[in-house]
Design a protein around this nucleic acid. Structure first.
Length: 556
RNA sequence: UGGGGCGUCGUCUAAGGGUAGGACACCUGGUUUUGGUCCAGGCAGUUGGGGUUCGAAUCCCUGCGCCCCAGCCA
């Protein structure tokens, strides 16, 4: 407990200090400010956890604010998806805000700056502005329109807003310093002309504010105390401060922290959109996507994502979290909450030769060994069953404990069986096994105390229900796809494997969509929303840790 | 290169002048009717060089390396 108190990250320390000095009257008001131009991904989840988490911790508030200043990129669909994802993560915004609600006020502030001589209308084209901005080494040159009279600027700005000029013909620029070593301070554009329909304001405006101009105002208007954002905006903070100082309005404190990176994945909306638009995946909510909607469909719990963020930490250094860490936390969470079921993904028929034909026995199985309250259920057992193809080897290596000719293993919750005969097709593939069972071992233990080295999952052939199972793997084959010349070159060709012929125990018919289930010895799965009553589809969220696979790898 | 930022086990992250700790990964072993879980143990780190100090990951100086910025994107 005290240990938790001691481990304060740098943002908490800054706020602690502010509260000590009374900088913001001990108030904490943060905001999560997404642009509605795509779906939220796990990188955003870090920002959400920091923004909402800080507010929660200090008894403050957090706004959800859509930074909708560019109508050509933004859509209502994204607004709705973002709201849903934030709620799913378990956070509740205190105010729902839109930058577009402040357009008039921003306009008025712009007029103020023009009157103060701090902004001017520039007739340069985008190319010309770029060419006069200078470079990292060279200072820029002043625009020939820089010294227009305030009246002329006011008139032109007014007419810009009225729609008298075509797109791109003029901008409003801050009059700062074209030789400033920080490129952002070289007379940045505040407004551009865009005759575009805005999802929120419709046709009301044909000039739209730029991020640098708008964002600080949004924070100031809402009374945000600590404006938390990612590292790339550090260079913008002086400009943010400059605008607020010139306007002499409430001045939030911007604090920057490192964004999350994840190995074997990409976390940029641009690249994710490319995967969607290029049909590399099946939409934003494809279970392979690092989007929150994709992860939700895959079977992630919001708790596991939040726990992950706790462990990720908050700091300023660049980082790449290993995806194994996420998976580890996921498994830990799923292990505690998931009911166990049996399903066979790659079925191999087994006939128990000495079991009475036509007999069905109901056997008791534990629903969750981690949670007694989950209770038990009955599973049907019969003469013909399916086991996993991988659980039999005709000529097993030393460390393979599972079924082999002449060997005895346990069927989970059922009987010991011994393999007596291997049936093959003309090509030599094993297609069926004959086994005998020991009636004395009902439930899975032998009265004479003899042991077996393996326990297999199985499904009654007579009572099995059919399902499609989708096995997902990481989308990329290289740990840092962002560092590749083209991230699309390192896609993992096996990121999705569809198994059409899977056999499930009957109780699986009734699971709800998204309900997390452990298929014993295989992994965690959940029913996909594409399922129908006569066509079950299960997504594999994450496999169980597989020690045998590791040993197998060492052998080869 | 001008400006801004950052360097602690393989990967994240603590230690803010006083024993470099934790998690994941990896390796052992134990328990086990899931080769799961759980438990125990192990491996492994302060970017280099100076300085201040009884004592430096921490403070100072100086190298080196990495990231961001030249959209009318955010």
């Amino acid at each position: 407990m005290t240990e938790q108190k001691i481990k304060r990250h740098f943002i908490q320390r800054i706020i602690d200090e502010d509260n000590l000095t009374g900088k913001f009257d001990n108030k904490v008001l943060t905001r999560f400010p997404p642009e509605p131009n795509g779906y939220l991904h796990i990188g955003h989840a870090k920002a959400i956890c920091v923004d909402f988490g800080i507010a929660e911790e200090y008894g403050g508030q957090c706004n959800l604010r859509f930074d909708d200043t560019n109508p050509t990129a933004e859509e209502e669909e994204y607004v709705n998806a973002i709201k849903e994802d934030v709620k799913w993560l378990g956070y509740h915004w205190d105010n729902l805000c839109f930058a577009s609600d402040y357009f008039q006020q921003m306009y008025d502030y712009a007029v103020q700056l023009i009157k103060q001589g701090d902004a001017y209308i520039c007739d340069l084209t985008a190319d010309e502005i770029r060419n006069t901005r200078g470079s990292l080494k060279e200072p820029g040159n002043e625009s020939p329109y820089r010294n227009r009279s305030d009246d002329k600027n006011l008139d032109l700005f007014n007419r810009m807003a009225k729609g008298e000029f075509p797109d791109g013909s003029r901008t409003l620029r801050a009059k700062i310093d074209m030789t400033h070593p920080n490129l952002n301070m070289r007379d940045p554009v505040m407004y551009r002309i865009m005759h575009a329909v805005h999802h929120n304001t419709g046709n009301t405006w044909c000039i739209y504010p730029m991020y640098d101009w708008a964002h600080g105002l949004e924070d100031s208007i809402e009374g945000i105390t600590h404006s938390l954002c990612s590292l790339e905006f550090e260079d913008h903070r002086p400009l943010y401060d400059w605008f607020l100082d010139r306007l002499d309005v409430f001045h939030p404190q911007q604090i920057e922290f490192a964004r999350l990176n994840l190995s074997y994945t990409v976390l940029s909306k641009r690249k994710l959109k490319k995967l969607v638009d290029g049909d590399v995946v099946n939409g934003w909510d494809d279970p392979r996507m690092p989007t929150l909607s994709g992860m939700r469909r895959r079977g992630f719990t919001p708790e596991s994502i939040r726990k992950f963020m706790d462990e990720v930490g908050v700091a300023k250094r660049d980082n790449v979290m290993e995806i194994t860490k996420l998976e580890s936390i996921l498994r830990h969470d799923l292990n505690k909450r998931s009911q166990r079921r049996m399903a066979v993904l790659n079925p191999l028929k087994v006939i128990i030769t000495n079991y009475p034909k036509g007999q069905i026995e109901e056997l008791k199985a534990v629903n969750n060994p981690e949670n007694d309250k989950a209770g038990t259920r009955q599973i049907p057992f019969s003469k013909e069953i399916y086991i996993e193809k991988d659980d039999f080897m005709e000529d097993p290596p030393k460390k393979f404990f599972r079924l082999a000719p002449g060997r005895e293993v346990r069927l989970r919750y059922a009987y010991f069986i011994q393999c007596t005969k291997v049936i093959k097709d003309d090509d030599g593939n094993v297609v069926e096994l004959h086994c005998t069972y020991d009636p004395e071992t009902k439930g899975g233990s032998a009265p004479d105390g003899r042991k077996v080295k393996a326990t297999l999952h199985w499904v009654s052939a007579e009572k099995a229900i059919h399902a499609e199972v989708r096995l997902y793997d990481r989308l990329f084959a290289k740990p840092k796809p962002d560092s590749e010349e083209n991230f699309l070159d390192v896609l993992n060709p096996d990121s999705l494997k569809i198994l059409e012929n899977c056999k499930c125990e009957p109780s699986l018919q009734n699971v709800g969509i998204g309900e997390q289930i452990q298929f014993e010895r295989l992994g965690y799965f959940c029913k996909d929303p594409d399922s129908s009553n006569d066509h079950l589809i299960f997504n594999r969220t994450v496999p169980l840790r597989d020690t045998w696979a590791k040993i197998e790898k060492q052998i080869n």
